[in-house]
Design a protein around this nucleic acid. Sequence first.
DNA 1: ATTGTTCTTAACCATATGGTTAATATAATC
DNA 2: GATTATATTAACCATATGGTTAAGAACAAT
Lengths: 207, 207
Amino acid sequence: MTIKKVKQQIITAATKEFLSWGFDGARMQAIADKAGVNKALLHYYFESKEKLYYLVLKTAFSDLIEALLEIFGSEEDFEPWLKRLIQRLLREINSRPQFSRFVIWELNARKRQLPRLFQELLQERTQGRFLERIQAKLSRAGVGDYPAEQFMLNVVSLCMYPSIARPLLEQVLGKELFSGPDFIVQREEEIFQLIKHGILKRTRGDI
Amino acid sequence: MTIKKVKQQIITAATKEFLSWGFDGARMQAIADKAGVNKALLHYYFESKEKLYYLVLKTAFSDLIEALLEIFGSEEDFEPWLKRLIQRLLREINSRPQFSRFVIWELNARKRQLPRLFQELLQERTQGRFLERIQAKLSRAGVGDYPAEQFMLNVVSLCMYPSIARPLLEQVLGKELFSGPDFIVQREEEIFQLIKHGILKRTRGDI
DNA sequence: ATTGTTCTTAACCATATGGTTAATATAATC
DNA sequence: GATTATATTAACCATATGGTTAAGAACAAT
């Protein structure tokens, strides 16, 4: 047997519950119900709410980190790399919009466990090379004097924010934002153009 | 007497508590303690947790909305306007980083009350003119064919995301991000250049 | 001083929630 | 088939939490 069917059901249910409501808002009973199982079983398998939470987080994170590393790591030339980077960031975040909101919030409200988890999952695997790699990529593209940190902040901000703040933005604008499949594609092009021109212009000392 | 001193203490304490922990995580007892007051007094003045929450939210929001409208509404020429827009967005968000995280999260987890609140505070006052105004500004700057929605998303994303995701980003990068007063200034310039060049290039149909 | 109104509190209350237990069903082992 | 180990549940338990109540301060009005 690979992994207990019931156990998996619980994890799935727990993931939904935690991502929707955060640690404090999540209810063990709700998880049990969603998994079609008695509450005591949760404790039988996972001991406590904290432990279950931690496990859910770890699993969800592993997936995300994996995806990100893969996205950032590819070895294409600069322009196609940038295009794909944006494309995949947008896709990634839009396939799990709740997740990023959740991470940002929980990292704010419950500072305890998350940092430790990050250390485990990320630090050792990238060891600060994140920025170095990007810098290398920029150099190869002939814009090595452009700071990788700013570059990275720009790309990530542009890709992530609208999805994360979607409920907020839609309220403020008073209309649907991601309507139609066009939106994401448009946005993709917009970000690409913005970054590309923003970089080129600057490094040539233009205007 | 303008506004009951004790009442104000409670609101202040409640604000801190709710912004730090969200509705579910916030504790009435903690608010009472922070305000140096008996718990029953909270109910004497504000009836219930929900009511208090709602009030806190409304107050905090009013302030923010006011600031934003003021920022977006000024009548300068395009370039100085953009520069100030960025400057003030950055300043605004960095003076209350928790607030935006909070809004984004609560709008995700507790969809009930927030939309109603927004309607009350915002809709009537801007009535979709938000984008129209920006579009007008762009026209006057000679780049009227640049879509206001994309422009707005870009500016806001670039200004807001790093502050909101700060804990996350610092974990991933493994270093302080907002160290030194330089950072904000640098970022200010970076965003300004990016947007400016991104717009100019595009509208001229340049590569 | 006396009375009445507004604040403020200590002591409670009801309930929800995470967690436990002891008994039972199910599957595995012999 | 009997025995043992593993799953699963119903019934409880302890505690935390939002909320209430009744009594007493503080203060104003007379």
